[in-house]
Amino acid sequence: MTALLVALGGAIGAVLRYLVGRALNARFPWGTFAVNVAGSALLGFLAGTTGATQALLGTGLCGALTTYSTFGYETVDLFARGHRARAVAYVAATFTAGFGAATFTLLAVS
């Protein structure tokens, strides 16, 4: 049963990531930034959950919604296209916003 919950959450998260990326990615990877920050916030909020909720939303939804590999690829792509300052800003903003969002929601529910 747990594996099915992870699969269901993963399916939903993957579709959400795709839709947000399509809507926001034009000249800068805003879609990846948005889903990574939103996923970090949701994981912070879910930090104390267990069982079905954690499987469905934490592991499944957030696992598929957030994407470190795409973040890494987009950063390297920005560097390769000569946008070094944008790449550095993207990394700094993603880490700052992601950790900030997770911290904020974790503390808000504590």
Rank of each mutant, 00 (worst) to 15 (best):
L24N: 04
A26G: 03
R27N: 08
R27M: 06
F28S: 02
P29I: 03
W30Y: 09
W30R: 09
G31H: 03
G31V: 15
G31P: 10
G31W: 00
T32S: 07
T32L: 12
T32Y: 10
F33L: 15
V35A: 01
V35L: 05
V35R: 03
N36Y: 02
N36R: 00
G39C: 08
S40I: 11
S40K: 00
S40H: 07
S40E: 10
G44Q: 00
G44P: 03
F45N: 02
L46A: 08
L46F: 01
A47I: 14
A47S: 11
G48I: 06
G48L: 14
G48A: 04
G48K: 03
T49C: 15
T49W: 14
T50L: 04
T50H: 14
T50F: 14
A52V: 07
A52Y: 13
A52G: 10
T53Y: 10
A55N: 05
L56N: 02
L57F: 14
G58F: 02
G60E: 04
C62N: 01
A64K: 05
A64P: 06
A64T: 00
A64R: 11
L65T: 08
L65D: 01
T67Q: 09
T67D: 12
Y68W: 10
Y68L: 12
S69F: 08
T70I: 11
T70R: 15
F71P: 00
F71A: 03
G72H: 08
Y73W: 15
Y73F: 15
Y73P: 13
E74C: 10
E74L: 00
E74I: 01
T75G: 04
